[in-house]
Amino acid sequence: MTTIALLLASSAFASAPEDVVQYRHVQMEIAAKHMKSTTAIVKGKIERKQDLAAHAAGLQAVAATFGELFPEGTGPDKVKDTEARAEVWSKRSEFDTAVKAFQDATKALADAAAKGEDEAIMAAFGKVGKSCKGCHDNFKVEDEH
């Protein structure tokens, strides 16, 4: 009962901005792990072609809701730990286009993995990488060294 009450209670209030940022970090890390596994498979480092569909589905799941993880009030002006740039909010329609490209590319990978065609898989995999990189180039701050 307590759990349910808590869930209901939390839905009545907005989540804490720090928690939203942490949650989107984890989502990105999940995407990164699926990408790493996919890279190992498409490069022939490991014979696990049968896993491609699962990795594609994992990436698709991240892409599906990713845009929702950037509500107002979770930008660099409010949260210290975020690496999102202010442009996510000031150029929202461009950011949404980048999210859409992420969704389209991961869907193309899922379709190609379902069909099992190597060439289509390679092409879609390249497209997913481009969608990650394209969004980071414009909306994520660079790492410090």
Partner: peptide, 19 residues
């Protein structure tokens, strides 16, 4: 992988001129 896809081993994408 970095030089084709732009992705480093931690799954991130180096920016800052390297991109």
């Amino acid at each position: 992988t970095l030089f084709t896809l732009g992705m480093s081993p931690d799954g991130d994408f180096p920016g800052g001129g390297m991109s």
